[in-house]
Design a protein around this nucleic acid. Sequence first.
DNA 1: CCGAAAGTAGCACAGTTGTGCTATAAAAGT
DNA 2: ACTTTTATAGCACAACTGTGCTACTTTCGG
Lengths: 202, 202
Amino acid sequence: MPKVVDPARRRNEVVAAVWRVIRRDGLDRASVRNVAREAGLSAGSLRHYFATQPELLAFTLRTIIERVEERIAAVSAPTADPRDRAARILDELLPMDAERAAENNVWLAFTARALVDPDLRALCEEAHTALRAGCLALVTSLAPESDTELEADRLHALVDGLAVHAALHPQTTTPPRMRAAISAHLDELHDLHDHRAATGGG
Amino acid sequence: MPKVVDPARRRNEVVAAVWRVIRRDGLDRASVRNVAREAGLSAGSLRHYFATQPELLAFTLRTIIERVEERIAAVSAPTADPRDRAARILDELLPMDAERAAENNVWLAFTARALVDPDLRALCEEAHTALRAGCLALVTSLAPESDTELEADRLHALVDGLAVHAALHPQTTTPPRMRAAISAHLDELHDLHDHRAATGGG
DNA sequence: CCGAAAGTAGCACAGTTGTGCTATAAAAGT
DNA sequence: ACTTTTATAGCACAACTGTGCTACTTTCGG
């Protein structure tokens, strides 16, 4: 056996280097050489863990998706009050601290590339669909009498719109303002529920 | 004087070529040579109209912003019913046909690059701020008694979120569904206005 | 002590990039 | 006819890219 190295750990370090390069210089500067230098490796050594550059980028994107999924799963506690649970889940989805802001920016970079890269697009669309399903579930739990598909579209767009704004204009799209927007939206969903229920609508 | 050529027209043709390259291959493939080939020119000739590549890209982004501004201005008719006017303006902002879908995808590509390019960032932030101001004006015209800043955040995020979804997942984020989401949102703004006015709120 | 396996580094090659530079072609004024 | 001005094309250079390939180093099994 060779030099004792945990390949999985190494891969994670490389992914962290990819993040730093993308945030600092952009996705198109995430070349094998630049990432290797950022990770403190040579390009040849990096290619031991990722045979090709597309593989490296796809792995990085997958890592982001998994991280978000893990955060959501950690909140899930389905017995909690639906309103609180929704607020907590949406809070995990939005870039409320520096680490998630980084994650969000990297995600946006990948989204843009997914428009012209079929492999990345498949991953992004999968995440998009999952998030849409999650929004539908939240809406259904809060306002089952409403037009849940329509309200899921609205909530989904609100969340991703806030995320984009947080990436482009973080000085105005601050965590408190994002929380206020989400909170107001959830309040209206609740009102909608009450109103429809009271008038027997459906 | 030389070969009779309208430089402004040529620039517009080149910008159209940039759009096609970005949509087909992505912003990082919008090299001087690729754009020139797409425009049916040589790279040397292209550089007659755009001295550097950053200048070419900045001009392209500026063109997008101006196009949107012109469409908005064409709707403005401030005497119309506020609700109809808001719906029409928001309709112009969203990718409701193939041309605006192309524009939207190119815009998203530039937004992602703006995260790491100060020049493009300045342009994107300017557009972002203008759009935010427009949302605030619409909200104020529809629900002046509401928390207009908060509601402007929500409307702005909804619009940009829908645009991103239309770029990434156009098969589900269709024009009718976008219109329905906008319409529902405007309805709630109106309800909010009525409710606050009826209860003397502020 | 030694070889096998695995990590690391680096070179090589062909392709692309931005941009500086020069040469040719065409149209207008003299 | 001749010059001037502009458009167009193309070459050249240095830098960077992904990736194939070869060497060296380190560690463990025997």
